[in-house]
Design a protein around this nucleic acid. Sequence first.
DNA 1: GCCACGGATGAAGATTTCTTCAAGTCGTCA
DNA 2: TGACGACTTGAAGAAATCTTCATCCGTGGC
Lengths: 114, 114
Amino acid sequence: MPVPLYQAKAEFFRTLGHPVRIRVLELLQDGPRPVRELLAEIEVEPSNLSQQLAVLRRTQLVTATREGNTVVYALSTPDVAELLRAARRILTELITDQGALLTELRASGGRSHR
Amino acid sequence: MPVPLYQAKAEFFRTLGHPVRIRVLELLQDGPRPVRELLAEIEVEPSNLSQQLAVLRRTQLVTATREGNTVVYALSTPDVAELLRAARRILTELITDQGALLTELRASGGRSHR
DNA sequence: GCCACGGATGAAGATTTCTTCAAGTCGTCA
DNA sequence: TGACGACTTGAAGAAATCTTCATCCGTGGC
């Protein structure tokens, strides 16, 4: 292992670690979109969205191309969509597990714990 | 969409966004391990490792069980390993793309850009 | 009981990341 | 050319995360 590989991975995940950026990536799963549309669907000020788009651009997760008046964003590779799907799977599993645990605890009479 | 789903996803990725935590998860891919071993492989102070382990525990990515003298950690679900693999694929692709772009730029005579 | 060892926890200062605001660029239309 | 719309950028204060240090808990040996 060369060395700062864990660093790179951590940075990668951190760029995914923001609600607005996640939303953008999910919207882009269905195809390229102009900023204007992203802005319409995500409740955030234009400059803030722009900042987050800049982060995604820096890490090469998306590409931006100017088309006349507007700027269109797209996923740079379909793998990104796949990663999001994998994450969604884990997340739902973790959440349902939690839920199951919760109901189990309740079923067992709600004895206190911790 | 209920609402704070993007929030949850973002938090999930953020917990992956730390070199030590990534290393821990990767080490646990090969099976459960006592803290002592993790400590031997990751260069970090005990209390710091403990902090990061606490983060992973809170998000249910790992489980800890005491075995006599030591504490053993394990992935809470094999899906975590799968996610890491997916991430690794994307990451290597992004990096090789970058590399390809770079060599292409060099081959084209190193004309300045931007 | 007492002490040492393996870890966990709490708190505080240092860093990093977010949000927001003001100003700037680039294309279009008149 | 000038003005406007669509974004982007830079900077600064606010907020979250990291690292580290001191302290604490549980287990086993003496």
